[in-house]
């Protein structure tokens, strides 16, 4: 029996004449990390805002399971609409927006103390949570540093800490790694994982599909206002393409010649596309063994030196781009 914690049911949201969300259906399970992917302007932020109850949809509803009933069976009666249980939603949900939402002139401690108060936490619980979260986020040493003096990554972590101050069961992160450098992004992934390990359900949106692939248990693809598919990254990849991706790096890197030779090989290699990306030859093929064999043969013939070769499923990014093209 699935343990859904949030159900998005036939949600439609319009802004003026434009329909941003069109009959969206989604189930989020307890304890998972769910990623929402989509292009810019596809409605990711709108969906997240609707889930948390900021925006009232024109049609449909968003139901969530009350915190104290999470351990019970998936009985419809345990669910409440987020629009009629505003306070319960706020107590159960934590939200971290794309831009850190904290007071620049307050210290880390003061920010968390303040928001802890707003969640009606008692003094002891508040202090305990602050200590735990500061350590978890790795900003304990900057406890009494004003937020304005923190780096971008630390700000983000503080923001997430403030979102977690009341120990919500559901955490919503909107573009958590936006504006972060790769190193910080990695740290953020690690952090998100740590939070999730403590039992928090996480819903996040991101442009960085590679991180969603790594982080998320499941993802949902939002396209033209619809969730066209929701599932594990592998499920999605398999659903949209049977191809595998061969990435080849050689030197001196006469990829165009290699491509030409592959095209004129006369063998059926089931290659759907070939391209040079980031100084690597990328081949999409449903027959990866045959194609790889042929490519390596050509590389050898041309006296190219092989530097790197990988064979894997295409990334979500690639799937999305393909979808974009199809649409």
């Amino acid at each position: 029996m699935s343990n859904d914690v949030i159900k998005v049911i036939n949600v439609t949201k319009r802004f003026g004449k434009k329909t941003v969300l069109d009959d969206v259906n989604l189930d989020i399970m307890s304890g998972e990390i769910f990623g929402i992917i989509g292009m810019s302007g596809s409605g990711k932020t709108t969906l997240l805002n609707t889930i948390i109850g900021f925006l009232q949809p024109e049609g449909g509803d968003v139901m969530f399971k009350l915190e104290h009933l999470l351990s019970f069976s998936n009985d419809e009666r345990q669910f409440r609409s987020v629009f009629s249980s505003e306070n319960d939603v706020k107590k159960s949900f934590g939200f971290a927006a794309q831009t850190p939402s904290i007071y620049a002139k307050l210290t880390c401690f003061e920010n968390m103390e303040y928001f802890g108060h707003l969640y009606n936490l008692s003094h002891d619980v508040r202090r305990t949570n602050i200590e735990i979260l500061l350590k978890l986020m790795g900003i304990h040493d900057s406890k009494h540093v004003q937020a304005i003096n923190l780096s971008g990554g630390m700000l983000k972590r503080l923001d997430i800490a403030c979102a977690l101050i009341h120990d919500p069961k559901i955490l919503i992160l909107d573009e958590p790694t936006a504006d972060l450098d790769p190193l910080l992004r990695k740290q953020m992934w690690k952090l998100i994982k740590q939070i999730n390990e403590k039992g928090t359900t996480i819903i996040l949106s991101s442009h960085f599909l590679d991180e969603l692939e790594l982080l998320c248990d499941r993802v949902g693809i939002l396209l033209n206002g619809h969730i066209i598919m929701a599932g594990t990254p592998d499920q999605i990849k398999c659903h949209f393409t049977n191809d595998q991706e061969i990435k080849l790096e050689t030197t001196p890197g006469k990829y165009k010649e290699i491509i030409e030779k592959l095209n004129h090989t006369g063998k059926n290699l089931s290659i759907s596309s070939m391209d040079v990306v980031d100084n690597k030859l990328v081949i999409y093929t449903s027959a990866p063994e045959r194609s790889l064999h042929q490519v390596l043969h050509i590389v050898e013939e041309m006296d190219e030196i092989l530097l790197d070769v990988t064979v894997e499923k295409p990334s979500l990014q690639e799937v999305l781009e393909k979808l974009k093209l199809e649409k």
Partner: peptide, 13 residues
Amino acid sequence: TSRAYFRNFVTPT
């Protein structure tokens, strides 16, 4: 105009 303005709305206050 503070960044925290939004977060106030998220709290049960």
